[in-house]
Amino acid sequence: MAVAIEHEASIDAPAVKEWQPRIIAFLCNWCSYTGADLAGISRIQWDPSVSIVRVMCSGRMDPTFVAKAFELGADGVIISGCHPGDCHYQEGNYKTLRRVHLLKRLVAGFGIDAERIRLVWVSASEGDQWAETANDMAREIRSLGPLRLQT
């Protein structure tokens, strides 16, 4: 039933066999996911190396998820929630903010560049900001190169 397609190293233009990063983005349902949808509705282009995982609140973001993403081959992780003060759940984004500070210091201890984790605030009306975030992160990760975990 499956039709085999050669995908290895062909994520971007097939002619260019260069390395492509993989970036996981955890987006809260109410602001950021809706904002990313708005980018889509408005056809604002962003880098295909970013894939979105929907969570109800950025506060759901368990540090384990980030660790697991890196372990599974992600080169970068974006966490995006509602702007401070705008959280659908009142204050989940503040909890995230505290966790991400700690998490960045923790991964740095494991030799992972803290820049590979980025926390941003994107509202439901900020489709262009989401696209800009995704593109900027992709640029950053491309300049950092692939994440090589010592296992």
Binding site: S10, A36, A39, I41, R43, W46, P48
Partner: peptide, 13 residues
Amino acid sequence: REQCAWVHQNRVA
């Protein structure tokens, strides 16, 4: 759609 087809142009990617 919103988070893939509409925001990327490279068909392979």
